[in-house]
Amino acid sequence: MELLGVIVGISLKALIFIIGMFLGAAYLTWIERKFAGHIQQRPGPLHVGYHGLLQPIADALKVLTKEDLVPDGVDKFLFYLASLMAFVPAIMILAVVPFGEPFNIFGLEIKPYITDLNIALILALAFGSISIYGVIFAGWASNSKYPMIGGLRKAAVLIGYEVALGFAMVGPIMQAGSFSLKEIVEAQSSYWFIIPNILGFVVILFAILAETGRTPFDVQEAEAELVSGYNTEYTAMKFGLFPLAEWYIATFVLSAIAVILFFGGWQPFPLLGWLPIPGIVWFFIKVFALFMFFLWVHWTLPRYRVDQITELAWKVMLPLALANIFIVALWVIIVG
């Protein structure tokens, strides 16, 4: 009985999280289009609903009802698998992200996270690495030249930045002393981990921009060069899952992890702790701010060439991450 209750509870929570993430991602597209529009002095979606608030729903309906063309020469199994493999791992990272402290409603204790593993961070990194396969399968299975070039480019970029990402995360782990994300947040109650980890934060910013494919690193779908990169041959919902997974869900989730590691998770701002705002709201404010920063960078900067990106990853980001580990080790010894 106890087991059944646990299973039902967790499945219900997982369902709420997944549906919430879908709706959230849909409305993140609305935020991006409005933001990009107003930077360019145009309104963005305006007529569908009040100021375009129903536009994501219209888009979802359009993508679901489009004709789904599968060219003849593709490798069918990998073709269908690729869009799933790009999308599922991004959602799976949600399983380990804690949103706040446990709170009570009507006597029930609700924990706003699905699990609390003691190796949560490694699991998140592992899931992120699986999504590279989605890109490679998409480029290969399409059996055409442009997707192949796009897929190979992105694979090269991702391998380099995964390494940098992993090394940059070592700093907060050393300071908190565990891999569990919940314990990392709780260890930041006195000061946030951003202070000794500035270099690590810069490396993680660039790594997130490269992982999720935003300029200045969006080389795999550089429209002027490769029409649409590795998802040229995809249509309808299979196509819709690619940007949804990469640009929105992955960015959101990776920003959440960055906020947990460096900015204190659900801890309030240093001097504003007396405001009656629950931890979840603080968390969401910080994640949205980081997300908007990524959008801002995307719509301003030009993009690098592929060999320049990989050069940056291995020659600049990796040494910076290693230097960061060294600095944090000194900090831990000196300050404690």
């Binding site: 933001f35 107003h38 930077i39 360019q40 002095q41 145009r42 309104p43 305006l46 801002w296 960078v297 719509w299 301003t300 900067l301």
Partner: peptide
């Protein structure tokens, strides 16, 4: 160089829209 570019872009966020509906 990135900061200056970003500052220029964010200034446009607060200007009025120039497209005709």
């Amino acid at each position: 160089d990135f900061m200056k570019g970003l500052k220029t872009t964010i200034k446009h966020l607060f200007r009025k829209v120039i497209t005709v509906d």
